[in-house]
Structures are given as structure tokens and as C-alpha cells.
Simulated scan of single mutants.
Amino acid sequence: MPAMGNARVEDVAEGTVDQLLSVAERLFAERGVEQVALTHIVAESGQKNRSAVHYHFGSRAGVLAAVMNRRLAPINARREALIDALPQEAAPLDIVRATIAPLGLAVVEAPWGADYLSILAQVTFHPRLLGEQGVDDALLSGIRRTKRRLAQVVPHIATSFVDQRLRWLIDSVVFAMARWARDTPKARQTPAAMAALIEQLAAYGAAGLLAPDPTPGDLKP
């Protein structure tokens, strides 16, 4: 019987955490992370215990990290699966598509997709919002694999350039997809429309990654 009781307590705690994260996610997307206090999350979730958020997450940065990790987990898993499906001789365009597609597909397939992109765009522009929390490094494994695959297919481009350009690419893709999710009428947010956007962004990204170094010879390190 005690074990049964403990299981029920754990279920209640898990349900509370899930509810708090869902409310926080919605508020962060609707109002902006900086405009949402822990008290707002508690009030909107209907929790009677005002210290519930602080108890589970410690701070707003802790809540934000938990929100992002919860959604990044399936996105990273899908990214890994798409990279796994690539042939060994995959072109840069294929690698870029596999990397960015999970973000766009979340918008049209998951009820939380648009909110996550809105929050991701805010954090991309203001990394300080996460404080020292950061996201779970294990959930960035797909991005690390992208870097390795790109380094294999563009050996003529310095690794430092590939890393830098990939960061620029991901930043611009996040903002472009978040803007698309915000400004495109829901009726037009179809899988076909997102597929077209993914193809355009993948082509743009691959071209940028492959561009020659424009730095004049006398200014190169």
C-alpha cells in the first residue's frame, strides 16, 4: 500500500509540473518571457500553492529552461532520425534540410509548435533570459551531428567558418519560422506551405554555407 501511495504522489507532482510548464509556455509566447513573473504562472495555472513554481524550478530561468527542454527533446529526436536517414554522400542541402525541418514541422504538427518557436526566437535574441541554466546539452546532439556531417562534405571550408555560418543559419531560420507562425493565418499554415518554406530556407542556408570566404588575402588570419 505505501508503494501505491507514493506512486500517486509522484503522479500528482508530475501532473502539477506538466500543468505549470504548459501555462508558462503559453504565457511566455503570448506576453514575452520578460513580462511573465512566477506569480503569473501560478495564478494562471490555478495552483493554490503560490510557491509551487519556485519549489519545482527555482526561478523564471529555471521554468524557461524546463519549457525549452521539454520541446527540444522530440525536436532533437526527429533531427537525429532525419540525419540517420541521410545517405553517406548526402549533399549540404540535404543535411541542412534535415537539421531545420523538425522546427518547421513542429509548427504545423504539434499544438505547442508555434509557441515554442516564439519562445526560441526570444531566447535566440536574448540568451541571458536563460541565466546560467541553459538547455540540456544532450538535446543538442543533432546539431553536433550536423556539424560533423557538414565538415565531411565541405572539407575545403574551414571548420571555424562552418560553425559560424551554421550558427547564423540556425538563428535566421528560427526568426523566419517564428515570424511565419505569427503572421501566417492559421488556415494557411498547412504542411504543404511549411514544406515549401523549409525548402526555401534549406536552399538559402546551403548557399550561405558554401559561399567562398570573402575576406581579402591580406586580412586573413
Rank of each mutant, 00 (worst) to 15 (best):
Q88L: 15
V96W: 01
R97D: 11
T99H: 13
I100P: 00
I100D: 00
I100R: 01
A101I: 00
G104N: 05
V108L: 08
A110H: 10
P111H: 08
G113F: 05
A114E: 14
A121N: 04
Q122A: 08
V123G: 04
F125P: 00
R128H: 10
Q133N: 08
G134F: 09
G134Y: 09
V135S: 07
V135Y: 05
L139G: 03
L140T: 14
S141F: 06
G142T: 09
I143W: 12
R144N: 13
R149D: 10
R149M: 15
L150F: 06
L150M: 10
Q152Y: 02
P155V: 03
P155I: 03
A158L: 10
F161N: 06
Q164S: 13
Q164N: 12
W168H: 13
I170D: 06
S172Y: 09
V173I: 12
V174W: 05
M177Y: 05
R182K: 10
R188E: 15
Q189D: 03
P191E: 07
A192C: 00
A193I: 05
M194T: 07
A196Q: 13
Q200F: 02
Q200K: 12
L201G: 00
L201T: 02
A202R: 03
Y204S: 11
Y204E: 13
A206P: 03
A207D: 14
G208A: 10
P212R: 08
T215M: 10
G217V: 03
D218C: 05
L219I: 02
P221H: 03
